[in-house]
Simulated scan of single mutants.
Amino acid sequence: MIYELRIYTILPGRIDAIRKRFSDHTLGIFDRLGMQVCDFWEDLEEQPKLYYTMKYESIEERTRQWEAFSQDKEWNEVSQRSEQDGKIVERVESVFMKQADYFNKR
Rank of each mutant, 00 (worst) to 15 (best):
I2W: 10
Y3P: 01
E4D: 07
E4P: 08
L5T: 01
Y8F: 09
T9L: 06
T9K: 11
L11P: 03
L11I: 03
P12C: 12
P12L: 13
G13W: 06
R14L: 02
R14F: 04
R14V: 00
R14D: 00
D16M: 07
A17V: 04
A17L: 05
I18V: 12
R19N: 15
R21T: 13
S23G: 08
D24M: 11
D24Y: 11
D24W: 07
D24N: 15
H25S: 09
T26I: 09
T26C: 03
L27T: 05
I29M: 05
I29H: 03
F30K: 06
L33G: 02
L33N: 01
G34S: 05
M35I: 15
Q36E: 14
V37S: 07
D39L: 00
D39S: 13
E42Q: 13
E45F: 05
E46N: 14
P48C: 11
P48Q: 14
K49V: 10
L50Q: 04
T53R: 12
T53P: 01
M54D: 00
K55Q: 14
Y56G: 01
E57M: 00
E60N: 11
R62S: 05
R64D: 09
Q65D: 11
Q65V: 07
W66T: 06
A68G: 12
S70Q: 15
K73L: 05
K73W: 02
W75D: 02
N76G: 04
E77R: 13
V78T: 12
S79N: 07
R81Y: 10
R81N: 14
R81M: 11
S82I: 04
S82V: 06
E83W: 00
Q84K: 11
D85N: 14
D85G: 03
G86R: 03
K87H: 12
I88Y: 12
V89W: 02
E90Q: 14
V92Y: 03
V92W: 00
E93R: 14
E93Y: 13
S94E: 06
V95F: 06
V95H: 10
V95D: 00
F96H: 12
K98F: 08
Q99L: 04
Q99C: 01
A100M: 09
A100K: 11
D101I: 07
N104Y: 08
